[in-house]
Design a protein around this nucleic acid. Structure first.
Length: 583
DNA sequence: GGCACCGGCCAC
DNA sequence: AAACGTGGCCGGTGCC
């Protein structure tokens, strides 16, 4: 390939000229180079634009190009599709620094992830997909160079190359998306980038004093419990440390197993489910379980959370991975705000700032509604439509007892079955969860599927498809592929469970992503931001005076999003206005 | 010293 | 020793 040619733009006249030339194109590749990965920390140095006619590199340190109406029009007009790689990064930068919402977009990163359909072995960086799809080499060595000073010819050329490659990539990726029937889901994903960018930029407020108090409390408990545990383990410890303390690392499973062994307690592993049955007979085991809880609380949810505070905003700005799981679910990191312990001690620290409220909304039983709708199981549909407590209705239908006479145990059993079926729960699993033998569990599962025979048929078909076709789809058409060794029974069984679970879980992701899109648009007139999203839950921060209005918008848009994917069962949204992240 | 892996455990 | 799916984070451990 020939060396990348580009036009460097540093003045208004050449910018105008470039905008005229680019304005005639429907497809415009866009990229930025910035002085930091954090929008609050860095500045945008270069804005690169490419069409099939040429590459333009705008030096934003030389010209305030985003003041230009022509350029803003290009970046926001539906007449031009903006092609970016991992657009969330650039969109955040442009949104924060210039208040501009870039769109509509085509994201080569997300397109590549969709096409990979859950295969984990493929990289999706720009260099990786250029090599794989175009057989073209892209040098990323300049990526981490300093973009804040005087730029070299090499840096400009690298920058131009990054946007130049995007249009040929889009062309190939588009035909693959068409071939795989994923145009619709691609649109969904692309439209979701802006809401996610805004969400990350907004970040979530945390009451640091509250968090520190909580951490200090746990630390005191940790000190007491660890010394008690060491004392109780002393009998099994051969050696004392120089200070006369039992010499053991409580966080080392191997040392724990050895020590317990010398005390006459044989264990294979020290996971809580393995220890739980022994806790009654051995106080030391109970103490160990207690220790684990505070150790986890301290290590995962202690000071490390506060290390992610943004110095500029004083808030937490996590990274959401838009296509994080194979089924299309999002994941989250740095910090992972999708795994904050669901207890008041922790959640109450996530408090809206003065004068603001949180609107907390989650879909109720969304995965069951997806199955009911998809399988057209009349009894499950009816159960969900009845407005009665679903698990009680299930128990009543299964056991033929009147709804009012369903016992607590019967309801608990039905609840386990309702939720477990999504994951391919077996007799062993069920018997471990409720107090029945494996034979009884088997019978209950048979009764369940006799009651909901449509669900049974749907699940069987989904599992069979995973094995024979080695693929499945969510409601949006998102493809999920399965790779396994057909001679390995354990692997086949695993794939059958995945085949049942992934389309359901992924369809839930379809719905919540659509909700984020609709909600971002609908909240535009309000002083409100989406601040978190946890699989079937959305958290919005809003000015106190607009909280009620916001609440009705959130409910309306979440319901509308669900209606696009499930028709025969209405969605149900539980929603509260609160000061902190508590329901 | 950095990296990959694992055991363990938090969320939905 | 595992049991029902998807993730991320932690500390320990062993390798290079």
């Amino acid at each position: 390939m020939a060396e990348t040619a580009y036009t460097l733009i540093e003045d208004a006249t050449s910018l105008q000229q470039a905008c005229r030339e680019i304005g005639g194109h429907r497809l415009v590749a866009v990229d930025t180079e910035t002085t930091s990965l954090d929008p609050y920390d860095g500045r945008v140095r270069l804005l690169q634009l490419s069409t099939t006619d040429g590459n333009y590199v705008i030096d934003l340190f030389q010209i305030n190009a985003l003041d230009s109406a022509g350029l803003r029009e290009l970046l926001t007009s539906p007449a031009h599709i903006k092609v970016l790689h991992n657009a969330k990064f650039d969109l955040k930068m442009l949104l924060y620094h210039f208040g501009i919402e870039v769109g509509p977009i085509f994201d080569t990163f997300l397109a590549s992830k969709l096409i990979a359909a859950g295969r984990p072995d493929l990289g999706h960086g720009l260099a990786a997909i250029s090599a794989r799809i175009l057989n073209e080499y892209v040098d990323k060595s300049m990526q981490t160079s300093w973009w804040g000073g005087r730029l070299t010819e090499e840096q400009y050329r690298y920058a131009a190359r990054d946007s130049e490659i995007l249009l040929p990539l889009r062309e190939q990726l588009t035909s693959q998306l068409v071939e795989l029937g994923m145009v619709e889901v691609a649109k969904l994903e692309f439209d979701c980038v802006l809401p996610l960018s805004a969400m990350e930029l907004a970040g979530m407020a945390i009451d640091t004093e509250c968090w520190r108090r909580q951490t200090a409390t746990v630390l005191r408990a940790h000190e007491i419990i660890s010394s008690e545990l060491k004392q109780q383990l002393a009998a099994g410890i051969e050696q004392l440390s120089l200070f006369g303390e039992p010499d053991i690392n409580l966080d080392s499973p191997t040392q724990i197993i050895d020590t317990l062994g010398r005390m006459g307690i044989q264990v294979e592993g020290t996971r809580s489910w393995q220890l739980q049955p022994l806790a009654k007979d051995h106080p030391v085991i109970a103490k160990l379980l207690e220790y684990r809880t505070v150790q986890k609380a301290l290590s995962s949810y202690g000071d490390s959370m506060l290390e992610h505070l943004n110095p500029k905003t004083g808030r937490l700005h996590p990274d959401f991975h838009q296509i994080g799981a194979t089924g299309g679910r999002m994941s989250c990191s740095n910090p992972n705000l999708q795994q904050v312990p669901n207890t008041p001690e922790y959640r109450s620290c996530f408090r809206a700032p003065q004068g603001r409220k949180l609107v907390i909304a989650d879909y109720s039983q969304i995965e069951l509604r997806i199955i009911a709708d998809w399988s057209e199981d009349t009894r499950l549909v009816k159960a969900l439509m009845s407005g009665e407590d679903l698990h009680s209705v299930t128990a009543s239908q299964m056991l033929g007892v009147p709804l009012g006479e369903v016992s607590k145990e019967q309801r608990a059993m039905a609840k386990q079955l309702n939720y477990g079926l999504i994951y391919g729960l077996g007799p062993q699993g069920l018997s471990a969860r409720i107090n029945v033998t494996i034979e009884e569990a088997e019978a209950l599962i048979r009764t369940y599927f006799a009651t909901y025979s449509g669900v049974a048929a749907w699940l069987k078909e989904a599992a069979d498809r995973a094995i024979t076709d080695r693929e499945n789809r969510t409601r949006s058409g998102r493809l999920i592929t399965f790779s396994f060794d057909p001679l390995d029974r354990a692997q086949v069984a695993g794939m059958e469970r995945l085949g049942k679970n992934a389309p359901i879980q992924g369809s839930c992701a379809d719905i919540i992503k659509r909700a984020l899109i609709l909600l971002h648009e609908a909240l535009r007139p309000l002083d409100a931001q989406i601040v978190n999203c946890i699989h079937d839950e959305i958290v919005v921060e809003v000015a106190e005076a607009e909280a009620d209005h916001c609440r009705s918008i959130v409910e309306r848009e979440m319901m509308a999003a669900a209606r696009e994917f499930i028709r025969s069962v209405p969605a149900s949204v539980d929603i509260v206005i609160a000061d902190a992240w508590l329901k």
